[in-house]
């Protein structure tokens, strides 16, 4: 996990996704091939840090490593450039987490590898 995360830490910390050099479509997570025009000329690009909730859920049964957080919100966020990010939504009152809500990106602890392993950081969003 530590090495897998290290490799893409700029994606996790700065939302570096990809942009199609041919048609300009932007993606997060990054893609190898443009879904709009089929081009494989994709370049890294930092995404805008604000967007809106397309849909969301509150998860009650966690994956290992997320037990302490339940229940927590997961949302599909559409960024200003149209890219869609699956993300946790934190520090937001229940009534604010809803479809269409404006959100902004932050960086949080995403996963902690026990007492002695590494701390993996990554993007989460907050209702703005």
């Amino acid at each position: 996990m530590a090495i897998q995360s290290w490799r893409i830490r700029d994606r996790y910390y700065r939302l570096v996704g990809s942009r199609c050099a041919s048609c300009g479509a932007e993606y997060f997570p990054p893609v190898y091939r443009c879904r709009e025009c089929g081009s494989d000329k994709m370049k890294d690009k930092e995404m805008p840090k604000t967007g809106r909730i397309v849909t969301y859920t509150q998860l009650h049964e966690p994956l290992p490593g997320f037990e302490a957080q339940v229940p927590f919100y997961l949302a599909l966020v559409e960024l200003e450039n149209g890219a869609r990010v699956l993300t946790q939504v934190v520090d937001s009152p229940d009534e604010a987490v809803k479809t269409g809500a404006k959100v902004k990106a932050t960086v949080r602890r995403a996963k902690v590898e026990g007492e002695s392993g590494q701390i993996i950081y990554g993007y989460k969003f907050i209702v703005a």
Binding site: L74, L76, L86, A110
Partner: peptide, 19 residues
């Protein structure tokens, strides 16, 4: 890297889809 990483279980994805 992008789904399990954020703590989204398979049920969570389907929860999003259901809403």
């Amino acid at each position: 890297e992008y789904t399990q990483f954020v703590g989204a279980s398979f049920a969570a994805l389907n929860g999003l889809l259901a809403r």
